[in-house]
Design a protein around this nucleic acid. Sequence first.
RNA 1: GCGGAAGUGGCGGAAUUGGUAGACGCGUAAGCCUCAGGAGUUUAUGGUCUCUUAGACCGUGUGGGUUCGAGUCCCACCUUCCGCACCA
Length: 827
Amino acid sequence: MKEDYNFRQIEKKWQESWEKDEIFKSSEDPQKIKYYCLEMYPYPSGRIHMGQVRNYAIGDVISRFKVMKGLNVLHPFGWDALGMPAENAAITKGVHPQNWTLDNISYMRDQIKRLGFSYDWSREVNTCLPEYYKWNQWIFLKMLESGLAYRKKSWVNWCPKCQTVLANEQVVGERCWRCDSLVKQKEMEQWFLKITDYAEELLSGHELLEKWPEHVLIMQKNWIGKSTGAHITFSLPDSSKSIEVFTTRIDTIYGATFLALSPEHPLSQELIADSVQKEKLQEWISENTENLRLRREVGEGEKEGVDTGKKAINPFTGEEIPVWISSYVLMEYGTGAIMAVPAHDQRDFEFAKKYSLPIKEVIFPEKTSLTEVMDDETFEEYGMLVNSDPFSGKPSLEAIEEMCQYAEEGGFGRKSMLYRIRDWGISRQRYWGTPIPVIHCKSCGPVGVPYEDLPVYLPYDIELRGEEGSPLEKEESFVKTTCPRCQGEAKRETDTMDTFFDSSWYFFRYTSPREGKLPFNFQAADYWLPVDLYIGGVEHAILHLIYARFFCKYFRDSGLTVVDEPFPQLLAQGMVIKDGAKMSKSKGNVVDPDDIIAKYGADALRLFILFASPPEKEFIWNDEGIEGGFRFLNRLWMLVQENLDLFKEESRYQEDVGIEEKARLLKIRTHQTIKKVSEDIEKRYHLNTAISTIMELYNHIKREKDELRQSEGGKDVLKKSLETLTLLLSPFAPHICEELWEKMGHKTYIIKSSWPAFDPKFALEERVTIVVQINGKLRGKFEAERDIAEDQAKEKALGLSRIQNFIGEKKVKKIIYIKNKLVNIVL
RNA sequence: GCGGAAGUGGCGGAAUUGGUAGACGCGUAAGCCUCAGGAGUUUAUGGUCUCUUAGACCGUGUGGGUUCGAGUCCCACCUUCCGCACCA
């Protein structure tokens, strides 16, 4: 009697069974080769979305495959549970962030369990629990001790809607990455992590990451933004002060016709102090300082500025040049001041034109004949120096070296390196984050909370209204405390940490999630790390992945680990697209995984999501596509049902003895399939082609099964192939395969069975089709024994009547033979 | 503007090392089965053309090139998407 494919019952049955027997639980075993498969943990926003399903499905196939290959696999899961959405929900819906978050987690955990992923749930990590954030605080205190964490007053990006500071990385196109409000500048005391100390290493470490996608490395490289140049000091004749600039083109310094300061530059105010137009200039400066972001957004076009009336001395020429304050000079980069060379820099050129400042050419194109250069454009390339006294006639690169040396000898400059990356501001004026464990004492200053007092608990009772300032600030019971050093009255720090702090080390915590003395256990981390495969969206290419690398290097320097790079291999999956746009609530094109599971089952969803495109490319959702996946599982189900009788009897056929042609072909096909599927999963992560190969094997079996059932040998091969088919599909659609496996009479879980091995002897076909081309065009083909002799192949090709017709009277110039592939006859 | 990725049937995609372009799936069409079908099943399915049991020509964004042979390599260009963006 044939049963229907009842996915609801089957999926429930096996999920319960797997959980009961704890088959995905992992532990250190020095006897076995470990494999740490990690997917980026989610923010518990309420429900899982397709992008996450895809992410976890990819990871699950790899994990299950590695388990079947006999590796000791760590496949953990957790929650990036702190952060603003919880607080926003509290303000708009009146739910406490903690309740909201924990409810979301329990709902999403169920959703994920319904997808049948092979997570070791005993290692689940949740960053909003004190047992996790305590270690954030511990790490912060260590950083504070080593000077890596520090406090400074600085201009920060302030989102007026979220009422908080944003890291530079969270400002997208001058707008808040979350709510899209225009970001403002505000001066505040903030906590920073000195990631710039590691800038060079984060860059050079890329050499160890040859298994990362090139574009991610390039994005990080641009973000770190190293440039080589020189710092040069211009003295001010009537002042003891001087102005330092950074330039990558010291070779153009003889063409510097003015200096330009950023409006926020400390000297900007000072230089105009005794000007007759003081008020007017002052006004201009403040306007341009406050609207820094705005001015840049409009930016691109108009460059504005004011003349301070002061002069500076070009140390190379000894000439006095005017000092301007200009809107296009950024305080955050370099020294906040530049030497302007209008002839060789487009921006300086535009500015000079607008204010009729002199333009002096000092670089000449080495090749071109000249004339058409200049006038209305700049020459920004390297070339030959002119009008540069002793350096005239030298090529740029050579001049740069010599001029740096000259500046150094003269004591007014030095060769230098500049990075675009800036220290990481981690302070957030928010409630739902890790409290920064610091106490402010009037006499002792900021003091770290003693380790034994950790964690600094986030108070549960709090009022959240969404008003300016941190909610913790208004919570007297939290703020009021005593100084651990002098016991005097003191105030607790009310800033909380950026949640990227949490995600910078959660993968360490997974290796020993209940460790109580340190953030993680050294031995456990030593066994499991580095992560063998890290899978996640490209949207984290810069932020999360740079921070996590930074933490790992800091841990290494602190002796917490020996790992250098945490993620030697990264798989950056593409976005999920529907109707030509990224799936998102705002676009209204979201497909809810729950609905799909209810209608087609988890296996069908997993199969389709992996089948539609390779992981690194974008995945285009198609409502009809899922039906295809579902139908395939139904067909497979029926096929196995129809042949279950084969599994009831012992096979009595001697393998390979007098096996008939059809059976032999299926056997070959089966072995070829094992080879291809294994390689696709293991080497290329191209799960889509792995699935299509499995489907091809299915089609082959389906087509030949009736005939195969006629003989004992045929039955035997058929049975073997069905088993193999089930094993190969099991990482993709684990529930149905587990059920079929059981029906075939196996007593152990399918994941505990070995991944099938292929015999190279069978993975090669004995007969091959050889293509015959004339002048590269396909004109015929013939079958032959594999490795047929070249002469024979050519002879056979020429013997084909069609080929004869083509050749006719013409003369054969030459014949090219590619072994087992083709014969090309050149006429 | 700079940097990156990608352009292949009606659609998602395959072709891994320069060697049969379009695997696999979706969709579509026709047939069978069926009380019925948004189920199952069989067949067909890049385009144009012709002397239609067969065959010719064209065909992987565009234009060139290398090669016996190019989706794949080289040069130029076009389009789309992504990242950065007054970075001195």
